[in-house]
Amino acid sequence: MREGPDEADELKARLAKLRGDLQSQRDGQKEVQRAEGDLTDKGLGQAMSLGFRVLSEFVAATVVGAVIGWQLDLWIGTAPFLLILFLGLGVAAGFWSVYRLAVTPPGPRDGEKPPQ
């Protein structure tokens, strides 16, 4: 009967130690997985797809800006000033898209209230 509380304490201590060990083991595995993840096909593929996205967003915005300016020039007859203006705006739009791509990871904006 005298050993009762001692045994319980010892058991508690051992359980706590086990929990800590398991946790550190789990963390270590997670670290290893993260380190490996960058080198696997998935990491390469995601990096590549992001690269293609940046490239195509930038080129498309520039081209669309230039085409809008060119067509407005043809329509109004102010060649080449609107082409120059809209080419600049297109480049700015391209940088803007790339900036947005880099700053905010695409995800649901559920935190914000959708306007009614």
Partner: peptide, 25 residues
């Protein structure tokens, strides 16, 4: 006004970038 114009161009370029990326790859 400039930002809105830039946003509109950015929006208009979406179908182009979406289609050209898949096609070009």
């Amino acid at each position: 006004p400039f930002i809105v114009l830039i946003e509109v161009i950015s929006f208009a370029s979406r179908p182009i970038s979406l289609s050209v990326r898949l096609f070009a790859n």
